[in-house]
């Protein structure tokens, strides 16, 4: 009886956390609009989301041991995020293209490179994340990390222009009529590099 009670308490606590996190994620999705619900409800969803956030201790100061402990548990159990993948709609695909400008005027085009298909999938997730970042400074910073990774492979470039955009695939009806995917530029960032110093050989 006692062993069952202890296990049950732990299980109920765990499942309540799963439920709360799932509710929070759903309220977040609903509060962003573009759903079947009227937009006047958006603020109510936001309030509901803030209630669930408070239940999860995320309103507490960052140094609070309860918040730290709860966050650690959620992450360790893999239950820190909800399950609203592709909800309420499937986002567009983002694409990042680098325009490599060389000192001699040459221009080459390149995309972020990884060796394996699996890492390619992770890269797509990163681009999706960048596309959804609302803070322009954070977005620029993340793209510059990728620019820097490309620059390490091409140290003789004078400037790299990072062009971040979205690939729009037409709906089925338009696809049947012959329309194909199109690329729409969202942001572009120029990063210039100092020319490499020429070593002086002394006799």
């Amino acid at each position: 009886m006692a062993f069952k009670g202890a296990y049950l308490a732990g299980v109920i606590f765990h499942l309540l956390l799963v439920l709360t996190v799932s509710c929070r994620a759903t309220f977040f999705v609903l509060s962003k609009g573009h759903t079947i619900f009227p937009s006047k409800l958006d603020s109510s969803w936001r309030e509901a989301e803030s209630v669930t956030t408070a239940v999860l201790g995320q309103d507490l100061p960052k140094s609070n041991p309860l918040r730290q402990g709860l966050s650690a548990y959620l992450n360790a159990a893999g239950i820190e995020a909800g399950y609203g993948f592709f909800a309420p709609h499937v986002p567009g695909t983002y694409k990042l293209v680098f325009e490599l400008h060389y000192h001699d005027g040459r221009i080459e085009y390149e995309t972020p490179k990884v060796k394996t298909g699996s890492a390619g999938l992770h890269l797509v997730i990163l681009l999706d994340f960048i596309g959804q970042v609302e803070d322009s400074v954070v977005r620029e910073g993340l793209i510059k990390f990728l620019v820097y990774a490309t620059w390490r492979e091409h140290r003789d470039v004078s400037m790299i222009r990072a062009v971040f955009g979205t690939v729009d695939f037409p709906p089925p009806g338009e696809f049947e009529r012959g329309r194909r995917e199109s690329y729409q530029v969202l942001y572009a960032y120029d990063v210039t590099f100092e020319p490499k110093p020429v070593p002086i050989h002394q006799p």
Partner: peptide, 27 residues
């Protein structure tokens, strides 16, 4: 349940557009 619920709220999942996008989007 929550995966389905969140999708139910999107008009695209009700008219099939989201399914199309899920199949045609890279990767």
């Amino acid at each position: 349940f929550f995966g389905g619920l969140a999708k139910c709220t999107g008009p695209g999942w009700l008219n099939g557009n989201s399914l199309w996008r899920a199949f045609t989007n890279t990767p």
